[in-house]
């Protein structure tokens, strides 16, 4: 297990280092949320209504755009070959890498969400709901995105293709994430039902993501 711990710490260090892109994700999130009012107008009532949706779209794009280097850097310097040959199952390796990736890029988004919600005039209950749904939902995005990153690992410019392949698969997460957030602020709609479904989706992606990504990595390196 210590090898997996070492891998986790290594990935975390690499992504926090300058140029690692961990802070880029938050910056991207900030700029996406900032440009929305320029497109839809500064009407605070409107922004409050679509605020959770904007935050979710921003987080979704920020997560996906930071994913294309997840395995590519390892492939370029040969680390991936060592990981493939290693004694640990590749599924576990992928899971550990995803965990490090989420800590360095996903969690900052969740932390920044309450602050950005204030800009969008989301009421306090809504802020708590968006933050909670993002906390549960962004790991699912990272895990399913890992499949795309593994599929496009041998391509030099796989970022755009990764988004094309993975965005349709993130639709359920987006639907239930936004529904739960809106359910917390609008009266008849429930919060708990979509939230529990979102939790279920994250657990499902926790299984699909590492298994499919490991299979993709194996087939790409044969």
């Amino acid at each position: 297990m210590s090898a997996m711990g070492a891998l986790f710490v290594r990935d975390l260090k690499l992504s926090i280092r300058i140029g690692g892109g961990a802070l880029m994700g938050v910056l991207f999130f900030l700029i996406v949320v900032t440009i929305f009012p320029f497109a839809v107008g500064p009407d605070l009532n409107l922004l409050a209504r679509i605020g959770p949706a904007i935050l979710w779209i921003g987080a979704l794009l920020a997560t996906l755009l930071s994913l294309d280097r997840l395995f590519q850097a390892d492939q370029e310097d040969g680390t991936l070959d060592l990981l493939l040959l290693g004694e640990h199952p590749l599924e576990l390796v992928v899971l550990v890498k995803c965990a490090a990736q989420w800590i360095s890029t996903g969690m900052p988004l969740v932390v920044a969400t309450p602050l950005l919600s204030l800009f969008l005039n989301v009421e306090p209950v809504g802020i708590a709901a968006v933050t909670a749904t993002l906390l549960v939902g962004t790991p699912a995005l990272t895990l399913i995105g890992a499949v795309g990153a593994a599929l496009t690992v041998i391509l030099r410019r796989g970022g755009l293709l990764l988004s094309i392949l993975i965005l349709p698969l993130t639709i359920p997460v987006l639907i239930f994430g936004v529904s739960a957030s809106l359910g917390a602020v609008t009266d008849p709609a429930p919060f708990d039902t979509p939230f529990y479904i979102l939790c279920g989706l994250s657990l499902l992606y926790l299984v699909i993501g590492p298994v499919a990504a490991a299979a993709a990595l194996r087939s790409s390196q044969e």
């Binding site: 359920p172 709609a189 699909i208 499919a212 993709a216 790409s220």
Partner: peptide
């Protein structure tokens, strides 16, 4: 390699497409 990559994505899609269908139905009635 392309065939294998596509096969993996096809299988992932086969699992997730019914979930997409379910969530879109849910979203639509909402």
């Amino acid at each position: 390699k392309a065939g294998k990559a596509v096969a993996i994505l096809t299988l992932v899609g086969f699992i997730i497409i019914p979930i997409i269908k379910f969530s879109v139905d849910w979203w639509s009635t909402l």
